[in-house]
């Protein structure tokens, strides 16, 4: 592997995505992508006593499910990169504490899934691993409890607010296989354009997505049309519109092949999710379910997956800080 341009890593021994798995909650199961997910839960507790325990179970079962689908023995998994949104990433660590897989906990807010894919690819290309798992989870109820208000509170969600996806996505990367391959990884810079409204994450993260998109295209010398699809993680309806317009001002027309996981996962009109989906699982499940299916069936041959994250917590919001955004991109080709 080598660094090209300003901040892009180009892989030489291309890591293959062997298989993916996804588990989603009931609300996601009512959405337009339901048929692509491996398992749809009937209730958000999944037999557990708390939202946090439920989220851990979702992550754990997703990881076990991807191992099973890949038919690799569990002992051949060298490392697991996983992360989530709960304080100190307890969903991932508690979910995987009995797995015996060496665990590398990562945090990139909602960009965690792609951060994992990128880091896993570096391990594989650098011969530090043969097989790694990358996983990420989020849960609407645990996220509301931690970041916003108790679920029983009778408040109105603003129109720009997004709905945290309940679920988990996991992918196994391997040094040998027939594709799809991860060809490039562009880790993003932290970009803060001063947005303070925690109910408008799409607007807070769109400038970071723009920065990573342009840097990736400049570093690789590609045009947006090189990709069959450019997909962002969870900008939602508001952030998607903003990114299209911002990209246009910089001379990039992405309107025809660009979409967002948060826009794809819910039906805005039927499901009353306002500005669309968000959370680590938004990008994680849409990639592991829908996009991986599109790559396997060769409907998409080249995609650029840009996961976006808002690097804030409830304390920083209360202290009046603005919301720094980040976006990591991986280029995936068959």
């Amino acid at each position: 592997m080598e660094k090209i341009g300003k901040q892009t890593i180009k892989f030489t021994n291309l890591p293959t995505i062997v298989d993916t798995a996804s588990i989603v909650g009931p609300k996601e199961a009512e959405g337009p992508l339901a048929k692509y997910f491996d398992k749809c839960l009937e209730d958000e507790f999944w037999g557990e006593k708390s939202w946090e325990k439920a989220e851990s179970k979702i992550l754990k079962e997703t990881v076990y499910s991807v191992i099973k689908k890949s038919t690799l023995p569990i002992s051949s998994i060298d490392y697991c990169f996983a992360g989530d949104l709960l304080n100190q990433c307890i969903s991932s660590s508690f979910g995987l504490r009995d797995s015996n897989i060496p665990f590398i906990g990562i945090f990139g807010a909602c960009s965690t899934f792609v951060e994992g894919l990128g880091l896993g690819s570096i391990f594989i290309d650098g011969n530090a691993a043969n097989n790694v798992i990358c996983a990420a989870s989020s849960h609407f109820c645990s996220a509301e409890k931690q970041f916003r208000f108790p679920l029983e509170l009778g408040n109105q969600r603003p129109q720009s607010s997004q709905w945290t996806v309940t679920g988990a996505g996991a992918a196994i990367l391997s040094s040998s296989g027939t594709g799809p391959f991860i060809t490039h990884f562009t880790p993003g810079r932290i970009i803060d354009m001063g947005i303070k409204d925690a109910n408008n994450m799409g607007a807070a993260m769109a400038p970071a997505a723009l920065d990573t998109l342009i840097t990736h295209l400049t570093d690789t010398g590609r045009k947006p049309s090189y990709y069959d699809a450019i997909i962002t993680g969870d900008l939602g309806h508001v952030g998607k519109e903003i990114l299209i317009e911002l990209a246009k001002t910089k001379g990039y027309n992405i309107k025809s092949n660009y979409n967002d996981c948060g826009v794809l996962i819910f039906d805005k009109n039927k499901q009353d999710t306002h500005a669309g989906g968000s959370g680590c699982a938004c990008c994680g499940t849409v990639f592991s379910g829908y996009l991986f299916n599109m790559l396997q069936s060769k409907k998409y041959k080249k995609i650029l997956l840009i996961a976006t994250g808002a690097l804030m917590n409830s304390t920083s919001t209360q202290q009046g800080e603005s919301i720094p955004g980040i976006a990591h991109a991986v280029s995936i080709e068959i």
Partner: peptide, 9 residues
């Protein structure tokens, strides 16, 4: 007596 429940909308 009550258990936390999911918000549907």
């Amino acid at each position: 007596i009550a258990k936390p429940k999911m918000k549907k909308q």
